[in-house]
Design a protein around this nucleic acid. Structure first.
Lengths: 256, 256
DNA sequence: CGTAGCTTTGAGCGGCGTCAAGAGCTGTGG
DNA sequence: CCACAGCTCTTGACGCCGCTCAAAGCTACG
């Protein structure tokens, strides 16, 4: 129990892995990062399509995604899957469950690709929270999550299908880039995008074809973004709310 | 500078005002509540329609709504107002600005009715955050905000106009009830609802008329909810995520 | 080589936006 | 006391975006 930093390939002074980059954006590195890494009880591999978190009250740990892509979803009464959020390496999959217990059985987290997740017991997380800078970092993480929802809400309620899809893709690319994953390929199916945007799979397909015809996406069946500038323009995406280094510099909260 | 609890009509042992009830839901009362109240630098009245917070970097305080209804909005390039959130007594209007500085001039907070707001300087807020239970309470407040966005996002992206409007009304009623305002009347215009749901004012009107014909809303021009059960059913609204007393009881985070 | 999933394509329809005009209500000034 | 302006609310006509249903190609994997 308790991994070392070296085991994760993390050099505290020079973060290279998504997890370290993520926490650096939240204002955590060095000793504090070490503490978090040491709180990781164990790491688990999850195959694409499998559940990561069950909506079980007895679960007493949070999961921190270290590789792959997951989504938190809610099933509607007709069995449909509504994706509420995507998670990328460095994101907590279920931090909100820790603070606001979810009673809803229809809620869960699913691996969209093969994943690797870190398990941190509530007990150990509580110990981490005793340090003000760690508590602040988690508050920031939640603030960031709220900001993401806020932006998506704006686009989802007012935007066209083209805007919704473009915005969603931009957001995922930006978030992945923030943790060092600067590939232009997103490992999402069109069905995933449909469940996340609230559009029908058929219309997502047509929308993607439009983006392809605009030379914003590659013509291949994979989801490859060619022209990110144009994609951002179409999706009215301004990534300022995700730019943690810049936000951190302006941060008003200080822990001295 | 610094109001006393008595001045606000708050009896710590038996909270009666929205502000005290709100913080009680976040796990704050007694001495800790006193601390917050004492951090209030001054109170300001704002007339309906006026701005509460300007998107100015030089503002170094948060505003806590004590009476009335406000909304945070974002102006689109065509001048349209997108309402991202409503605020009711006890809510912070701009807590997110404290943690994630907003550079966007198009963002602001507006009074929808005549309001009274409490001003708390960043400096004093920082002092409050030194106490772990207060830091935790603000984290909870942000978690709650995120949960609200999450629910609205689900409905906004997949729901019909009827569902969107019904859900929005239910949410506002539930949030107001949680702070002791159990009136069935909402002081919102149809235009406010349109800007919050992303629907056109014309269609909001038709939707409201549908709700009236279903005997869910009163026939009057005001927004009076008659049948809340039915409204919740229509809007697929489950207020569990807003029920702070119940959530507090199950809370996993302890500050000992 | 067959099955199960994802992607693509087509046809038809309905919800909601847009435009336009009118009604009720309130405050303001002559 | 009336006239007028500026709201919000109401109502109707029409068009388009995106949903639904249905079927067929495409991969991947056993």
């Amino acid at each position: 129990m308790g991994s070392s930093v070296a085991q994760l390939g993390v050099a505290s002074s020079k973060p290279i892995c998504p997890l370290a980059l993520k926490f650096k954006g939240l204002g955590i590195d060095g000793d504090a990062l070490d503490l978090i890494v040491r709180a990781i009880k164990r790491r688990v591999r999850v195959a694409a399509g499998d559940g990561v978190v069950c909506a079980d009250d007895t679960v007493k740990h949070v999961t921190l995604l270290s590789a792959g892509v997951t989504c938190s979803y809610k099933r509607s009464e007709d069995g449909g899957r509504t994706i509420r959020a995507f998670h990328h390496p460095g994101d907590f999959c279920d931090l909100s469950r820790y603070v606001l217990p979810e009673r809803d059985d229809a809620v869960g987290v699913q691996a969209l690709t093969d994943c690797s997740v870190c398990i941190i017991d509530y007990r150990d997380l509580e110990r981490l929270l005793a340090r003000p800078e760690l508590a602040l970092a988690l508050w920031r993480a939640t603030m960031l999550e709220a900001a993401i929802y806020r932006e998506r809400l704006t686009i989802a309620s007012r935007g066209s299908a083209l805007e919704r899809v473009a915005h969603l893709l931009c957001e995922q690319l930006a978030r992945r880039e923030a943790v060092g994953m600067d590939s232009n390929r997103l490992p999402l199916s069109q069905i995933d995008i449909a469940d996340a945007t609230g559009l029908s799979p058929v219309h997502v397909n047509r929308t993607i074809q439009t983006l392809r015809s605009l030379d914003v996406l590659s013509k291949e069946s994979h989801l490859d973004v060619i022209d990110r500038k144009q994609l951002a323009r179409i999706g009215k995406f301004d990534g300022g709310y995700l730019d943690m280094p810049a936000l951190l510099a302006k941060w008003t909260v200080r822990v001295d």
